[in-house]
Design a protein around this nucleic acid. Structure first.
Length: 387
RNA sequence: GGGGGAGUGUCCGAGUGGUUAAAGGAGAUGCGCUGUAAACGCAUUGGCUCUGCCUACGCAGGUUCGAAUCCUGCCUCCCCCA
């Protein structure tokens, strides 16, 4: 029992979960995720891991893919109305979400539901749902209070969100719902909705929000400070090494369920990276990713697998000269101007040799077979398809 | 329905007829330092066939030698009143 509440911020109402767990029948534990972006990141996994704990303890996990609520937009933690994804995006995301969630949950034991099943309801039924609450009640939430104070808009649609999420709980008869701390209002609101439909209100448990790799803002894809669970091992390790030291203890606690080990921060961070990579890519992947990291970033070497790039299309009119900014621009998805600046700033290397700042053209014979490097971490292996 | 206000570069945000590719900040990127941490320093940050050219301040026109700055219409958004 004590294990199941580890790391939780709120477990409400007080004492209720303990009572529920004393019963002998497994609880129906609900988690809803709206497929608004394509990938699950480590921030999501904090709650998913908690869900998995319940699953291992023999409870029935219900994963709700919010394909309907994604069209509404969860106002949680938002200072502005969320852009709504298209149905196609939602559909695509829903598929990858489930796949990724099963890196953590046991597929066989998980009940997966889409909330469009029950939320695509008759207008009368929707009115019945709306009749269960008041505007004042819906506006209570902190997000809205802040927005109103700042004279920021609140979409009418957003107002409906808690009702819909609450109805999910009714539909699956949840005994307990998990979520991030930013979900507290929605989770608690679900209790009211269940009550209105004659069900016993669920317990709610909130988990901390993981800070992103910048160490400041919450981990989020749109902020670009996330580590995706499907990131390649090297990238995952690299991103984890780049988190601020201050964020490390939290990563240990929330992602690995342990304390940060004593010793030099650098060592602790490497261990963090190894363990997390190993979790998502299998034993051995962690150590391999670290080796890659050592070679490329510590020893400033070259990774063993780098994409190759054909220099032929960038030859000048005489076909003996390569226009370097063009080549770099295309190869690394930069504009020629950006590439030009990088050269000027000494950020471009060929086989480890910094390219002189005034170099704009290079004889093509001097390029094939060499490694072109931009900045510290971007590489291309050049070849000449016309040679 | 009435009244008021706003739309500027990745974001925030100056600028209200003339060195304005557009202040300042953030972010990002490069170099240095380094543990791909933090902190710090320097630099860059529209595009291109680059001593020049093109595009740019919601959209479309107009006034002017000259406009992001003035006028007209349109679009979008916000606030207040009802």
């Amino acid at each position: 029992m004590s294990d199941l509440t580890r790391n939780a911020v709120d477990v409400l109402p007080e004492g209720r979960l303990a009572e529920q767990l004393e019963g002998d029948k497994p609880l129906r534990v609900k988690l809803g995720i709206d497929p608004t972006t394509a990938d699950i990141h480590l921030g999501h996994t904090v709650v998913l891991e908690k869900l998995a704990e319940f699953q291992r303890a023999g409870h029935q996990v219900v994963l709700i893919v919010g394909d309907f609520t994604a069209q509404v937009g969860d106002p949680s933690g938002r200072s502005a109305t969320r852009p709504v994804p298209t149905p196609e995006e939602i559909e695509a995301n829903a598929a990858t979400y489930q796949e990724q969630a099963f890196k953590i949950l046991d597929r066989e034991k998980t009940e997966v539901r889409r909330n469009s099943e029950w939320l695509r309801m008759e207008p009368e039924a929707l009115l019945g749902l709306l009749a269960q609450t008041t505007v004042a009640r819906l506006l209570e939430r902190d997000d809205f209070q802040k927005r109103m104070a700042a004279a920021q808009p609140i979409a009418a649609l957003e107002l409906l969100y808690p009702l819909l999420q609450g109805y999910d709980s009714v539909a699956v008869e949840a005994d307990l719902e998990l979520g991030g701390t930013d979900q507290k209002f929605n989770l608690l609101f679900g209790r009211d909705v269940q009550g209105a439909y004659g069900q016993k209100p669920q317990s709610v448990m909130t988990m901390p929000i993981l800070v992103g790799t910048d160490g400041v803002q919450k981990m989020s894809k749109s902020l670009g400070n996330y580590v995706g669970v499907t990131d390649p091992p090297e990238e995952m390790f690299g991103k984890l090494m780049s988190i601020p030291d201050e964020a490390m203890a939290e990563y240990y606690r929330l992602l690995l369920g342990s304390e940060q080990p004593e010793g030099p921060p650098n060592e602790a961070k490497r261990e963090l990276g190894r363990r997390i990579v190993a979790r998502f890519h299998g034993e051995g992947a962690g150590a391999a990713a670290e080796e890659h990291f050592n070679r490329v970033f510590v020893q400033r070497g070259v990774p063993d697998e780098i994409p190759s790039w054909d220099i032929d299309p960038y030859a000048g009119s005489e076909r003996e000269i390569i226009l370097l900014p063009k080549l770099i621009g295309s190869g690394f998805e930069l504009s020629s101007s950006e590439a030009r600046r990088l050269i000027q700033q000494g950020g471009v290397k060929l086989d480890g040799e910094t390219v002189a700042s005034d170099t704009l053209e290079i004889p093509r014979g001097e390029l094939a077979g060499k490694v072109l490097q931009v900045g510290k971490r971007r590489f291309l292996s050049l070849f000449d398809s016309a040679a």
